[in-house]
Nucleic acid binder design. Structure first.
Lengths: 183, 183
DNA sequence: GAAATTAGTGATTGACCAATAACTTGGCGC
DNA sequence: GCGCCAAGTTATTGGTCAATCACTAATTTC
């Protein structure tokens, strides 16, 4: 049961990704995260200075995993066209783990909220993560600027349809080329 | 000051669109909406049965306006290619009124939350609105399924970049063809 | 101009929630 | 086997929020 602070922080982040993905920033109580970890609610505040900091850690982790998924997909592939195709296919893995895509949606929404409230720092941090993902994916796929735009545009549509819960066999998925939108 | 319930409901919806767009569902208090309207908080519950119902009304209004913006853009145009281009340009109008695009983001995020909590009704309602928008835009532009997919994919990328607050002159806007991302 | 209807308010409540503070428990070195 | 530090808890607090209830004021109707 008892573990080092670093190990505990790690498991808290994992729980936070799931909870924040499912219920959003304001909809998630620190109590819910603590319960999922199996730890008391106040102890979270020993591991993270605030709820916001915990959310940021979850978001950072999420973006790292998304990036890692794409980079892993191109490993060992040399042909540029093949690499781009492999990254497109990698979306299947992301869709399979709902949390990573849903937490992205919550991140976009929460960032807009933070900025409307005058908090510029959150926006800067999120944009930095996003630009890093963009550039990494673009470089890994040897994409032109236009190709990268199209790639991410498709990704955002997938995110959106998934968030709304369109089932995998719905006709709106047809032009997209990745099945698995449901549940 | 005093007005009919219907007129008041109308002004409440307008206020709700702005507030929910800026602060999200859970981040917006009914007090904040009431204050913007200039009415007492309990009176909102005479006009709408619950906060959720008010949110749904705001979302419905938002989607109607988005749809109307696109349909208005093609008025008087006959050439199919011209109509598609006009709808693409119409995004400039939507970006100009931040609320409509940001409320969409909040809608996606909140729909995901509702579904994670077992509320299937919200998801169904939102999907119906979305399919209606999709079909209307597709019909108005005489688009193929693939063209519609590309059109909406681009739209979702615009939404996302806007939510994150990328300024209009940021390089990520380059491949998109609509300026006006910032504040 | 009185009666009835409709618009709107003030006070309150019970639940929830982030964060703090003060305390306890468990393992490790020696 | 004891002392010490890190892991973890219980209790609490100040604040917020959706929703209800009982009430008042304006408008319409006859």
């Amino acid at each position: 049961m008892r573990m080092s602070a670093d190990e505990r922080r790690e498991s808290v982040i994992r729980a936070a990704v799931i909870e924040f993905a499912d219920r959003g920033y304001n909809g998630t109580s620190t109590q819910a995260i603590a319960a999922r970890v199996g730890v008391s609610q106040p102890y979270l505040f020993r591991l993270f200075p605030s709820k916001r900091a915990l959310f940021e850690a979850a978001v950072r982790r999420c973006m790292e995993e998304v990036k890692a998924t794409f980079l892993k997909a191109v490993e060992g592939l040399d042909d540029p066209a093949e690499r781009v195709a492999a990254m497109g296919d990698a979306y299947v893995d992301l869709v399979a783990d709902r949390s990573l895509l849903l937490l992205q949606m919550q991140m976009y929404a929460s960032t807009a909220v933070a900025q409307a409230q005058g908090d510029a720092e959150v926006g800067e941090a999120v944009r930095a993560l996003w630009v890093d993902l963009w550039d990494s994916v673009r470089a890994a796929g040897g994409m032109s600027a236009q190709e990268a735009t199209d790639f991410f545009a498709r990704g955002m549509l997938i995110n959106t349809l998934l968030a709304m819960g369109f089932p995998p066999d719905h006709r709106l998925w047809e032009g997209i080329g990745v099945k698995g939108g449901g549940a």
